[in-house]
Design a protein around this nucleic acid. Structure first.
Lengths: 203, 203
DNA sequence: AGTATCTGACAATGTAGCGTGTCAAGCTGA
DNA sequence: TCAGCTTGACACGCTACATTGTCAGATACT
């Protein structure tokens, strides 16, 4: 292994192939974990979804949780970037901008239920490592919301830490109940409800 | 079994003994699940904590989740009743009353970390049955908070359903972060933070 | 064309915990 | 005191899954 010559295949180097397989596994994990939930997903199922065998799982990930974290980061990064863009592009009043961001958030959850399940549901209570990754993502989400409502408040650092966490928890819980209801209310109405709580972050 | 004569033992009937064992299992479950978490707790461990053997586990519970739900209900009932009492006894303004209730809530979490872990952490993401029980308890908690802040609003039924859920999610998330921080802030300060969000429920 | 690497299918192994069964010893009531 | 219900300790089989190993066939470089 250590001194294996590593040959080109299909026009790609060994490392390229390895990374491509890694990506396929992550995308498959998003689908599988999003569909049946991490708890009920097996390594085998993910590998089948990726059309790869178990050996390639252990080539890129030491444990299932590691793959879950990678999948979580992939989905969340995508979502947070999108929301950041929308926040930045929206010139109006803070309140308006926040509503737009929330609307985009809930629309994303509705349009991509599988990814949604990951970010909203599977983000918690899996294991220490996953919890840590989830906490970091949630913190980022809180910053994003806070920035949206009070863009000039970068100076106020740790004071509202708990309040910010609370607001994030509120948005997530609203999302959970909304999803559980089968998306009963309109996206716009849900965003309006969430905004009521987010306003606590404004000054 | 069906026609077993059932004899008295230690001055108690067979049914009394069975219920006593059930109670011991629930109390043991609160301790064990609260300490190591439901995920890492085994039937064996709970039985050892209860000083009973596995046979008695299956005598009272069909599955581990059933015991978790019972433990969850026991702890939550205790907590919610306590908060209800404090809310009822507090005559002052709504805002004051809510702060008192929140203070009691966070104090309870701090004084009883084991029960706290159950109500705050283990309430979610275990299985469908547990999630349902947890959702019911969270709904009750939301009603409690709502009633505390707007006692006369019994007429307004389902309108603020999502907002209420959001507030509950916020309080729980604040609790989680607070616990994770090792109870860094004072109970009073945390209650004040949570109150900021709860005020959304006032009219 | 031949050899060495790469790949996929699948078997083999190991572990953990659930749920059940066995058995001897301890009570209880007559 | 005795028969039989009750209890505790513990072993057993079973299932599911992770993880490693084997091997034949496909592919690329020389």
């Amino acid at each position: 292994m250590a001194t294996a010559p590593r040959r080109h295949y299909g026009g790609h180097s060994a490392e390229e192939r390895r990374l491509a397989r890694r990506e396929r596994l992550i995308e498959a994990a998003v689908r599988v974990y999003g569909k049946v939930g991490y708890r009920d997903a097996t390594v085998k199922a993910v590998c089948e979804a990726a059309e790869l065998t178990e050996r390639y799982f252990y080539e890129s990930f030491a444990t299932s949780e590691e793959l879950l974290i990678a999948a979580l980061n992939t989905v969340s990064r995508r979502l947070i970037d999108c929301l950041n863009r929308i926040g930045a592009e929206h010139p109006g009043a803070a309140d308006e901008r926040c509503h737009a961001v929330l609307r985009a958030y809930f629309r994303a959850l509705k349009d991509d239920p599988v990814g949604a399940r990951l970010f909203v549901l599977e983000i918690a209570r899996v294991g220490p490592a996953v919890d840590e990754a989830g906490a970091a993502l949630l913190g980022e989400f809180g910053e994003l919301l806070s920035r949206t409502l009070a863009p000039d408040a970068g100076a106020r650092p740790r004071r509202d830490q708990l309040v910010r966490a609370g607001v994030v928890g509120a948005v997530l819980e609203i999302a959970k109940v909304w999803i559980r209801s089968g998306y009963a209310k309109s996206t716009d109405a849900v965003a309006t409800d969430a905004l009521k709580i987010c306003r606590v972050l404004a000054h």
